[in-house]
Every structure is written in structure tokens, then in C-alpha cells.
Simulated scan of single mutants.
Amino acid sequence: MEIINLEGTEETPKVILDKDNGIFEISGRSLPEDVRTFYQQVLDWLDKYAAAPNPETKFTFKLEYFNTASSKVILDVLTKLEGISGAKVIWYHHDDDEDMEEAGKEFQDIVDGLPFEFKTY
């Protein structure tokens, strides 16, 4: 399966999706001009991955900021993960970033069939 490895910018997050090495991460800032276009490749990749996932999928979110449009697509990503057996979300946030911690908890409530682990950095 192909690897997605996108370097982050001021407006787009770093994305690594690497099935063979078990690396699934979205990090940085997410406020792309065209959110759907940016994340479509991630959603398409997850559809392919769901057909033959690893026994364990730890999907890491280490976002510093995301806009409202991104939050809708992040929810789409989480919904796809919810359908993957053995998937788990690792939601990172800065010690003092209560908003990002709360955002993760709100996502957790929405996709309650998907385990979340909260970590600080």
C-alpha cells in the first residue's frame, strides 16, 4: 500500500500514513484553503486501508490548531477509524491547551466506539 507523507506548512498539517511501519499521524496546523481537497487523499487511503488493516492501528493526532472546516473532516477521519477493528486514537495536546484537549474529548463523545488516549507534550 502506498505511503502518504506530506510535509506540514503554516496552513496544512503534516500527514504520515504508513501501513508497513504502523505510522498513522496528523500533526501541526490544519487550516487549508480547500479542506476537502487536502483531506480527500487521507480519506481515500483510509478506505483502502480498512479493507486489510493492521491488527493494531494507533492513529496519532498532534494538532496545534484546526479551523471549523478541518474539524468536520477530522470527524470524517475518526468515523472511518471507528469502522476499523483494532483502531485507537492517541490525541496529543500541549499541557496548557485546554481547548485542544476539550476538542479531543468532544470527538471522543461523538465516535464513542473508538478508544481514545489523551497525552500531553
Rank of each mutant, 00 (worst) to 15 (best):
P115N: 03
P53V: 11
I84G: 02
I26K: 02
F118N: 14
T60K: 07
P13S: 12
T57S: 11
D112M: 06
V111A: 13
F61V: 00
K62Y: 00
T37D: 14
T79N: 10
P32I: 06
E98P: 01
Y65W: 11
E106L: 13
S30T: 10
G8N: 00
T57F: 10
E56A: 12
P55E: 08
T9R: 07
N5H: 10
F61Q: 00
N21M: 11
V35S: 14
D76W: 04
G83Q: 05
W45A: 03
K80D: 10
K105S: 07
I110L: 14
Y121M: 13
I90N: 09
T57R: 01
E7N: 15
D34V: 15
H93F: 08
K48M: 12
G8R: 01
G86F: 04
F61T: 03
L63E: 03
P115W: 02
G113F: 02
V42R: 04
I3H: 03
I4L: 15
E98S: 04
E117M: 06
E101Q: 14
G28F: 02
P32W: 03
T37G: 00
K88E: 15
A103T: 10
A69C: 07
E106N: 10
G22H: 06
E33T: 09
T12I: 11
T9V: 13
L81I: 13
I90A: 04
D18N: 15
G86T: 07
E117D: 13
A87R: 00
A51R: 11
L114P: 05
I90K: 01
A52Y: 09
V35R: 01
N5A: 05
Q108D: 12
I74M: 05
D97F: 07
R29K: 09
E7P: 01
E101C: 05
E117V: 12
M1E: 01
A87F: 01
Y121W: 13
G8L: 01
K72Y: 10
I110R: 13
F107W: 01
E101D: 09
A103C: 13
Y121P: 06
L46W: 06
K19W: 08
F66Q: 05
M1R: 07
A51Q: 15
